[in-house]
Nucleic acid binder design. Structure first.
Lengths: 334, 334
DNA sequence: TTGTAATATGAAAGCGCTTACATTATTAAT
DNA sequence: ATTAATAATGTAAGCGCTTTCATATTACAA
């Protein structure tokens, strides 16, 4: 690897001049500039980013911490981040916290070592313990789908509550009264909001919440599958099921099919997320669309703007609305 | 951010001692070590990774360049890489080449600036133009699903040819003679191999390859959908379709359903990849399982071993075998 | 020409760290 | 107690760059 010194020597100038050329800042005679550029090309030189970062305190990298990496949801998240980061000339340092808090602490620490200029953090299970850690970091920090009272950071999230409310309301409007729910992880913020939305829709129509119809899940397909098994084995099974995400809804459909139950005739199923595959299952899944791409691209723009101090103003907490996607599995639109 | 100097001053030692403590290398009296550690904790100090990297010429980061980031396939790739990287104490710098070659050149250059210690590159459309660029880099480089003659780098790939051969052979064994194919992108190595496998299976059973039954696709669902539309509009439609990946197969199933064709009775459909959702579509998709996780985790181990010079030996080019997953859409196992 | 301002370049410090080498403190052996 | 060997610590150079400040060059007007 050639250094600035090699280029300087070969071009017969000082390293300062070479540096100036590569930062196209101040005055360099155009003849000199060309000479330097040419020499640099010959030596396949490009500035060492570590040395540069050491001086500038910038790495053009943003750290991304996600709770998990598998599935279409995260794939969409990553794609959105990558797209705007690339456009703005930033790299992304990706890691998963594996949904474990101590892991996250380790990650955050690492990222605060000068590796990244800003942080994009998605942690639906974010807890108070991390507050001190997060607030000592003076790195620009933007939160995704994370709720943490008392932390002054830009946050972008999706209106899970209203999304769930809408889809359950839709079910009720089409005559369902007994609606089971397969819930997400208890410590997950999204999951809790969705559950509240479910309850709110019920309450609004004077349907009492029945704990017997609420089943635990973990956002994985398997848990939807087993949840449905249990639902179907009830003495008086419900006529509809709200799965707190599409993966579980798909698992639930699977279980229903095995039990030879027709969807939506015997039992309607709705999900949440609108993952790409949800329109390809049969029957097509009625669900709630999450504007993931929109959320993450805004968040990424924001963190970069903060880094570049283009935005120094108020903290922004923005909730994006999730919309109902009526398809076939709810039984109302054939 | 506190520096090593701050810690040294406060602890009343020299920066060298602090450094030693954090590199648990040579001799430091345990009393001193404790003092330093304690002070560091008080100041929330952790070594600046850029400065360290500048000296050590190491960043504990591996660069990952993928052709695309969307869909379950890449999600699985990323998960696999993240898992072993995290275990081995490495970070991952992720970027997509967006399947564009010039983009890739830019990325490779950036990564060679000392940002990463090694490179994991997936480029099914890798072309000769990049050869010089790749070979000048003296960074450890490991290729995934990329074929490039003349480039001496460890490579891991999946036996696409044999996978396709197997699934098409399976179709033939169950009586199909007219088997259409929806192909992947022409410049994609995987796609070409799968197509060859398809042809080989045909040839072996003395079925001539019929260009009329070969349709272009691009690995996206849409193209499977439209491919199937065209297949069904043929005067004498085939009895089976081999889609070169699952996404297209699912699109094709969609088109078949719309045309009220029963799968597999009217037309059998098989795919390739075994993406998680393939077992949840209806009927369940018969496909070829790709040992993605296995491939990427091996590749990641390898690149890290190279970085750490634990492996300095021969270049390894390893092909992992893809296995047939017989489910329902081929019509043989109900 | 000469002087002056503007422009172009170089010298050198320093970013935060590691590490070879020099120095000092400690221990063990005589 | 004295010395040699060993262990612990400090000093200082330098990784590759940016940037301030000083110096040299150039351009232009008088």
């Amino acid at each position: 690897m050639n250094t600035i010194k090699d280029v300087a020597e070969r071009a017969g100038v000082s390293i300062a001049t070479v540096s100036r050329v590569f930062n196209d800042s101040s005055s360099v005679k155009s003849k000199t500039r060309d000479l330097v550029l040419q020499t640099a090309r010959e030596l396949a030189y490009s500035p060492n980013i570590l040395a540069r970062g050491l001086m500038r305190k910038k790495t053009e990298t943003i750290g991304v911490v996600l709770p998990d990496l598998s599935g279409e949801f995260f794939s969409e998240v990553i794609r959105g981040i990558d797209e705007v980061a690339a456009r703005r000339g930033y790299h992304i340092l990706l890691s998963s916290s594996h949904s474990r808090l101590d892991d996250m602490e380790r990650l955050l620490r690492l990222m605060a070592q000068g590796r990244v200029d800003g942080l994009l953090l998605m942690a639906p299970q974010l807890r108070k313990d991390l507050l001190p850690l997060l607030s000592t970091t003076k790195l620009p920090l933007v939160l995704l789908e994370s709720s943490l009272e008392g932390l002054d950071a830009d946050s972008y999230y999706i209106d899970n509550f209203r999304g769930a409310y809408l889809v359950v309301q839709h079910l009720i409007e089409h005559g369902h009264r007994r609606i089971a729910v397969i819930m997400g992880p208890e410590d997950n913020f999204d999951a809790r909001e969705r559950h509240k939305g479910y309850q709110a829709a019920l309450t609004e129509k004077d349907i009492p919440f029945d704990g017997e119809l609420a089943f635990k899940g973990d956002f994985q397909k398997r848990s939807g599958y087993f949840g449905m098994k249990r639902i179907l084995s009830l003495d008086d099974p419900p006529t509809a099921v709200f799965a707190a995400n599409d993966d579980m809804a798909i698992g639930a459909m699977e279980a229903a099919k095995e039990a030879k139950k027709a969807i939506p005739e015997d039992i309607a199923i709705v999900g949440f997320d609108d993952i790409p595959i949800s329109r390809y299952v049969s029957p097509r899944l009625t669900t709630v669309h999450m504007p993931i791409y929109e959320m993450v691209s805004r968040a990424t723009e924001r963190v970069i703007n903060r880094i570049e101090e283009a935005e120094t103003g108020e903290i922004e907490k923005r909730m994006l609305s999730a919309g109902l996607m009526v398809r076939q599995s709810c039984g109302c639109s054939y």
